[in-house]
């Protein structure tokens, strides 16, 4: 029974993935890609990785989808007549990719006799940190350097996006393409949903210590709420030079780094938590990270500063 569902799901994922790759219109390809992301989150649930499923749905499909839709809306005028590549190129690429797929499939079909896993050692020391969610444990205890660096990547990528602004507009407002006219229904949505959304976002971060969820997923929900409010025209897009905005961007990484350095003085080791204080410190990190991630994701979606959009 389980297998029938899994086989259907996999077929659906492959079909939708192929459809997104070969769809004629870029707009359709992107809409299909969002569906593809949601199907993938189902696959993640089937693989017993609920944390990843939430992240995939929120960031991999949700926020990325917003980003791509925003892009295709602006590119629509240029979405004409792609020159198809030569068939010889297509065939060569096809053979090459089939080869890669086949070799990977060959490895999948012959799993190692003794499955390798760090799950036992993760669980062995998880108790010390007071966390109940092993994924949060890996992210914030064992491999916290990865997570810290990844936060830097996210902020740096935003500076990179901003760097594409014309010289004179540095520090200006990103031109989120507003809805053509103030739409009463959209405004109603943007007034009613955010309170619920913000609550959901905070809840996701809060349960993240012990159950699936966490700063990434919570932050993504917060980002979506903020973008909704901005699209509806209820809140202005902040200028990128805004002091408050920049503080919100870095508060998470700064607190993370500060607690990491604190570890040197209290325990003698960078990114180690003093005994008994691990959980409160991690919650402090996650709380500030949720804010920073939410703001950073939303600013990624609205893009670099631009001249006011005129339709």
């Amino acid at each position: 029974m389980a297998s029938v569902f899994d086989v259907t799901l996999v077929c659906l994922i492959l079909a939708v993935g192929a459809w997104s790759t070969f769809a004629r219109l870029t707009f359709s390809a992107i809409v299909i890609f969002i569906v593809y992301g949601l199907l993938l989150s189902l696959a993640w649930v089937r693989l017993a990785a609920v944390d990843v499923a939430l992240t995939e749905a929120a960031i991999g499909s949700g926020v990325t989808g917003m980003l791509l839709l925003n892009a295709v809306a602006r590119l629509r005028s240029t979405d004409a007549a792609p020159t198809p590549s030569r068939s010889s190129v297509n065939i060569a690429a096809g053979v090459f990719c089939t080869l890669i797929t086949a070799s990977l499939a060959g490895l999948v079909l012959v799993p190692p006799q003794v499955p390798v896993s760090l799950a036992p050692s993760v669980m062995e020391s998880l108790g010390q940190s007071g966390l109940g969610n092993p994924v949060a444990g890996v992210l914030f205890v064992y491999r916290s350097l990865d997570t810290l660096l990844e936060k830097v990547v996210l902020v740096l990528a935003l500076i990179a996006v901003w760097s594409l602004a014309p010289d004179g507009l540095w520090g200006g407002k990103p031109a989120l393409r507003p809805f053509p006219q103030r739409d009463s229904v959209l405004i109603f949505l943007a007034r009613t949903v955010p309170p619920i959304g913000i609550m959901v976002g905070i809840y996701m971060f809060w349960v993240g210590a012990d159950e699936p969820g966490g700063a990434f997923q919570g932050g993504a929900v917060l980002a979506a709420m903020w973008i909704l409010v901005m699209i509806a025209g209820l809140a202005a897009v902040p200028p990128t030079s805004s002091h408050a905005l920049r503080l919100a961007l870095i508060v998470g990484p700064v607190v993370f780094l500060a607690i990491g350095i604190l570890g040197i003085f209290l325990t003698g080791t960078f990114l180690a938590y003093p005994e008994g204080y691990a959980k409160p410190l991690i919650i402090a990190i996650e709380a500030t990270l949720t804010v920073s991630i939410g703001v950073t994701l939303a600013m990624h979606v609205v893009g670099p500063p631009e001249k006011e959009w005129r339709s």
Binding site: V152, I159, R246, I250, G260, I264
Partner: peptide, 26 residues
């Protein structure tokens, strides 16, 4: 936990501190 080992951490985070300071102070 040797002091010398902290050198390795410092070369990683010092430039990052610079970037964060840039954003914070403008």
């Amino acid at each position: 936990s040797s002091i010398a080992g902290l050198l390795l951490v410092s070369v990683l985070i010092l430039p990052v501190v610079g970037i964060l300071a840039q954003l914070a102070l403008g």
